[in-house]
Structures are given as C-alpha cells and as structure tokens.
Design a protein around this nucleic acid. Sequence first.
DNA 1: ATCAAATGAGACAAATGTGTATTATACGGT
DNA 2: ACCGTATAATACACATTTGTCTCATTTGAT
Lengths: 194, 194
Amino acid sequence: MNQSVARLAVPTKRTSSRDAIVDAAIATLARSPDASLSVIAEAAGVSRATLHRHFPSRGALIDAVCLQALRETDAAVNAIDYTTMSSTSYLLAVFEAIIPLGDRFHFLAKVVAETASAAVNDAYAHQTRGVEEMVRWMEREGALAPSVPADWAVLVIDALIYTSWMAVREGRIAPRQAAALACRTFLSGLSGGV
Amino acid sequence: MNQSVARLAVPTKRTSSRDAIVDAAIATLARSPDASLSVIAEAAGVSRATLHRHFPSRGALIDAVCLQALRETDAAVNAIDYTTMSSTSYLLAVFEAIIPLGDRFHFLAKVVAETASAAVNDAYAHQTRGVEEMVRWMEREGALAPSVPADWAVLVIDALIYTSWMAVREGRIAPRQAAALACRTFLSGLSGGV
DNA sequence: ATCAAATGAGACAAATGTGTATTATACGGT
DNA sequence: ACCGTATAATACACATTTGTCTCATTTGAT
C-alpha cells in the first residue's frame, strides 16, 4: 500500500495530510453527502492531486471515512465501564456516548451504500455484534421481554440512535434528553410511566 | 402546463405514458435510488425523449414520484375507519396500513433530499400533521405519558415505520409482525410485558 | 381516410466527476 | 547545503448524466 512505511525514522508529518483529508471529508459529507472530491480537497486545504495520492479512488476515501467513524464510535462505547452497572444503565450510557457523535457521523447511513469494502463491512458487523451482545445481556437480566426477537431489538436501538442524531442535528432536542428519551422509548415505550 | 388538457373528449391514454413512467421510476428507484433517467425510461418501456416530454427535469420526475408515494400512503391511512376504535388501535392500524407500502416507497428517504419542491414539502408537512394529530389523540386518551414531548413521539413513529420497512424488505420479519412489534415498541417498549 | 398529438430514434451540447500524468516547488531531515 | 519526499498547479482523457432538438413514425379519435 505505502511502500515507504517500513522505513524507520520517517514519521514526520506523513499522515497529517491524510488525516486532514479524512477530517475534511467527514465535515463536508456531513453537510452534503454527495460532495465531490474537489470540494473535499478544498475543505482539507489540499490539492485534489494530493487527495488522490492518499486515496486512489473515491471509494477508498469513503472507506477510510467509514472506518474512522466506526473506530470513533467503538472507542466511545468501549470507554464505558460496564462492570459496575446494570444492562439498562449500560444502554443509557451507550446512547449518551454515541448520540453526541451524530454531528459528524449522521451521514454514514447515506454514504455506506457507496462502498462494498470488506473492511468496512467487517467493522460494521463487529459493531452490530456489540449491540447484539448488549441485547443478550438485557435478556439475561430479564430487562427484555422474551417474546421480542433480538433482531428487532437491535434494529430499534439502531433506529433510535439515528433518530436521536437527526433530532439533535435539527435542534429539536438536546443530546442528553435525546439519550434519556431513546432509552426510555426502548425500555418502556412512550405510554404510561412518568 | 398541458395546453391541450382543456379540450374535451381527449382523455384517451394521454396520461398512460406518464403513469407508466412514474410507476417504473418507483420500481427502479426502489432498487437503485441513483438510477439514471435512461434506466427509468427503459424500465417504463418508453424513450428517454418521452420521459423528458412529461417531466422536463429529473427533479420534476422525483417530485411526481414523491407526490405519488405520499398520495398512496395518505389513501392507505384514510381508508381506516378511526371512529370505531381507540387511539392505540388506530396506531396499530396505521402501522399495518403503511408497512406493506415499504416495498415501493422505502427509498423515499434517500430521494426526497434531491427535491425542494414546494408541493412535495406541503404534502410531506400534511402527512406529518396527520401523525401529530394521532399523537395528540393518544395524549387525550392518556395513552401517552405527559412527560414525553409530542415531537419525539412523532419522530419515533416515523423511525419505527422506516425500520419496519427495512426489516421487511430484508426479509428479517413479516409485515404483520413488524406492525405489531412497532406498535408494541412505541407503546410499552421492549422490556417486561409478554 | 385523415389529421393532430404522442412517440421513438438519434444526434448533440454542456456540465460534472473521476482518475492519471507531468512539472516545478516547498519542506524536512541528514 | 543536499536530497528525497510530499505537495501544488495544471492539463488531459474518459465516462456519465442531463437536457435540447429534429425528424420520421405511430397512434387514436373523428
């Protein structure tokens, strides 16, 4: 891939351009998911040629963007110390960790379809596996009705995250409240209760 | 728009091509939301020139597609006789009416962004207003917790419809079960209960 | 049969996005 | 100061899509 990587003592700013491009791509695609490479390069303060040097094709860039997003969400979730809490508290913690990332990653749903990269699919599957684990945990703790297919539970969690992202993005709701509402919606629905 | 419309006795098949194009557009865009006009025209069994004759621009076609979709969903919901049921039964009926339409309209979320037509925005706003009314009805009947923002309830309903559409489309779940699960999720969440 | 409207077939221009290649320049470490 | 790398600035080729236009043909109503 990068033939000079192996050479030692060449760390300099080798990745700085690349990172700038990925960051700019995230920021730009967040506004317009169909932004051209020219626009992204400009936003990165870099020539289009340089962009192509780091990412041979648009798909390669989209891949990198997706992987970066998945890496960051993964990190946010992994930062939670789940050993000290119940599965339902963990659910809330996950919502609270992920929802603030919506600013940057809400566009993923639109953009992921562009790519068929195995790496991205793997990372995505890994993330889904994490959600499935959480669902199973809730099942074990009796926090989830046995009649509910785990598959559906996973889908609803994803949907609530996306909905929260959009609601926060449109200024309809504050991140913290979104997390609380999403959690409540998942666990007890919107009827009755408080 | 169509200067010959006023002439009487010219109903013939004047709109048949147009309808064929809209139908083909729906079917084609359902598979690939970025399909070109050539592909759509071919699917409609019509030359691209004819397509352009009916729809001057791509946006005009997308508009027509969106309006058609909104019209159909509206019709499906309006067919429900809400006078004989509770608000929560109505919610289930709405889910059951709309979810089967996902086959054809699930792509709307991706495509609506292409257009900024006032007509489409109006139709969309009208539909949202319908959901808001339903939410208020549920509030009046005490089926909705007062602490839940109506705004959030509307968002969750939309999200559940979209999630159901996708889940059904991917064969993960049957339409009827999807409606039941969506309804249950909204009302009582996925914990406890049955 | 006739006439008008609708259509099919095709050519065409313009715009856009993407990927490649070339050359000169700036930067950074040795 | 030197040298290699990364970069900027271009230019280019290529594909795709969209929209327009023309002309011949078909269709359908009368």
